[in-house]
Write a protein that binds this DNA or RNA. Sequence first.
DNA 1: GTCTTCTACTTGAAGCCTCAAGCAATTAAT
DNA 2: ATTAATTGCTTGAGGCTTCAAGTAGAAGAC
Lengths: 174, 174
Amino acid sequence: MTMASTGNGAGTGGEPRWLSDEEQHVWQAYLQATTLLEDHLDRQLQRDAGMPHIYYALLVHLARAPRRRMRMTQLAKDAKITRSRLSHAIARLEQHGWVRREDCPSDKRGQNAFLTDQGNDVLEKSAPGHVSAVRQAIFDRLSPEQVGQLGEIMRVMAEGLQPEGTGADLPWRR
Amino acid sequence: MTMASTGNGAGTGGEPRWLSDEEQHVWQAYLQATTLLEDHLDRQLQRDAGMPHIYYALLVHLARAPRRRMRMTQLAKDAKITRSRLSHAIARLEQHGWVRREDCPSDKRGQNAFLTDQGNDVLEKSAPGHVSAVRQAIFDRLSPEQVGQLGEIMRVMAEGLQPEGTGADLPWRR
DNA sequence: GTCTTCTACTTGAAGCCTCAAGCAATTAAT
DNA sequence: ATTAATTGCTTGAGGCTTCAAGTAGAAGAC
């Protein structure tokens, strides 16, 4: 631990502040938990809904939107993914008949993605299993205090990684 | 606990326990924070070290191992990924000259992956930037209490998603 | 021994993600 | 109105991940 070092990603400088033992353990636990959960949900949904977790999350966002439709860019922002990724994803979801695209009336560049009835069915059928998986992984294992703490912590983290200032394009802070 | 349950993922059944409003918000915050951080680190390391975060994590595991080498299966377990994924990953890292494979003397099926000097160099050069990114995203933003809470929460979550019982193969709970 | 089963690891195809580049419509500048 | 800059979205190539299937050695049963 410690060491002069120098040379960070951008602009070298004074010796970096390494992580303490506790911080390393926390970081390690974070990595393991998030990796395991992500994989677990991907598998669960691939099996029960025929799509990876992030695709499922997109359907959820659409289902909650006003007329079950949303502008592509807005959806990308809400789901925290790039527009490119969203384009590919919606293309695939469209192939399955779960989502469709329509031109935006007010802006001829724009596209709305909307959830089809078929997509809504898939969502409703797989929702219980998904909720149950999330519950078993998180909410059934944590005390009410811990749930509150987790929420606050994640909010702080998300805020720090957010676009901040401008609502430019996703790869924030190039 | 509670609930006749019956078929969520498989087999339909009694009404599922949906998430409360607070739980939904926490889950949403969790998804956003973890997605944003993962993307952020992937970008940071792709830029500064020429590899995605998970590959970097593999190098870290190797660097900490006794003679900088580890059996494939053990490495996969520690990193919480499938052996298949590891095989592909090590193949790529080998192409870059950061890792090499060697036959395991005691078990002719086995392979050791070991970190090359070159790999170690890359690691040392990019470590400060990586630590700094992790720090900015997490440890500089949370109070000491929150860091402790996060550690405990992630440990509980990871434990619940772990192989449990047998040390079979990764896709736990097929 | 030899048959079965299990463990260690690899492989190829198909799907997903990233990056850079691109097109088209809108807005701003002059 | 023309030009330039910006915004909205897509595309294709290359890299990464998953899944199912496959090879080879080790362990156990008999």
